[in-house]
Amino acid sequence: MILDRGYIIVEPKQQFIDWLMKHQDTEPVKLEEVEPTVYLIDDDFMDDEIVLNKSYEEIFMYELESTAVHESFWPLITIEQFKEFFNVKIGVSVYDIKSK
């Protein structure tokens, strides 16, 4: 079943793992063990940059809140910082193969 959603796949980069290593009380995994996260978004968009600018703050907060790093060590939530920490892929082909 096709879903009327777009997606943003967010994959941590080595810079993010290094930052975790510096501030987290638990040892982070290696880059090859890191799993990307898929965020579903509205599919009514044409330009990736516009979508990213609209969504990155919320996604960045999610990613930071899921870490064990205390809020006082969080970086500034900017698009530049976001791009330094994560690779992103944006698209609109979302199919739910479990829902018939």
Partner: peptide
């Protein structure tokens, strides 16, 4: 057992 996302178990 605690495991944070992108972390190891403690």
């Amino acid at each position: 057992i605690e495991q944070v996302k992108n972390g190891k178990t403690k």
